[in-house]
Simulated assay, not measured.
Amino acid sequence: MTSPSAPPARPASKTAADHSARAALLRAANINPRTGLATDYLNHFNEAVMLLEMIPDMPECVEDFLTWKPLSYAEHFTASNFKARDLAIEAYNRADTGTRTDFDNITSAITSILSAVSDAMRKVQLDTTRTRLAQQATGWVKPLVMRAGGVINGEATNGNGAADVEYIMTH
């Protein structure tokens, strides 16, 4: 009687070929194969920033900004026309936990700022106050969007959003 044996190990070349094919698939879909994240999600925040930047010159744009609603990564892609939206969501779910946590912390901060500014703008009526709120929010959000883009593009962080030089040098 023979004992059941483990399934044969996959040859290293097959694993490397699978990894290479997946990376090519992700790259073709504009998803960073190293991080599993897509910059398309940042368009969601860039839209809000663009509206905020227009408020000082066109105060009526406040109404457009007030219709902006926060969306999670998956909600954004589910609602989008992004051709590889299912792949984007799946890649996000498979992304390194530390990278995804850094990314989620940054985008959560962006969402909190934009939501708070939206709430404040609903309470005030003066265009000058709304302009000031829009300018302050833009100053806070734009650097965070850039940091989120850095995480998407593989600029390693040390868990608090700061670059981790050791990680960068070894990967």
Rank of each mutant, 00 (worst) to 15 (best):
W140Q: 07
D104P: 05
Q135G: 00
Y167V: 15
I168M: 15
P59Y: 02
T111S: 12
S118C: 05
P59S: 04
D104Q: 11
S108R: 12
D57N: 09
K69G: 00
A28D: 15
T138V: 11
L37H: 05
A84W: 06
A148E: 05
D127M: 01
M58N: 02
H171A: 14
D18F: 08
G149I: 01
D102T: 14
K69F: 00
A23C: 07
T107D: 11
E47C: 09
Q136D: 09
K123S: 10
T170E: 10
T128L: 03
C61L: 00
V124W: 09
F103W: 08
G154Q: 03
D102Q: 08
R147D: 11
M121N: 03
R27D: 13
T2A: 01
A28M: 12
F45E: 06
A91M: 04
T101A: 15
L37E: 08
N160P: 07
A29L: 14
A16V: 08
T39R: 15
E75K: 12
S3H: 10
N46C: 01
S20H: 00
E90V: 02
A17W: 00
E166C: 03
D64F: 00
L126E: 11
A79P: 14
S20F: 01
W68I: 02
M121W: 05
P33M: 06
A17Q: 09
F77H: 12
A84I: 11
D164E: 10
Q135F: 06
P33E: 09
A6D: 08
D57T: 06
I89Q: 05
T129Y: 01
F65I: 01
S3T: 08
D40K: 08
D127T: 07
T39N: 14
P11Y: 12
T107N: 13
K14D: 11
V151E: 02
R27E: 13
M54H: 06
W140N: 01
R122V: 04
K69S: 08
A48K: 04
A29E: 12
V124S: 03
T131N: 02
P143K: 06
A16F: 03
V141R: 02
N153H: 09
P59T: 03
I152F: 04
N30D: 15
F77K: 15
L87H: 06
E63W: 06
A88Y: 09
E75V: 13
K83N: 14
T107P: 12
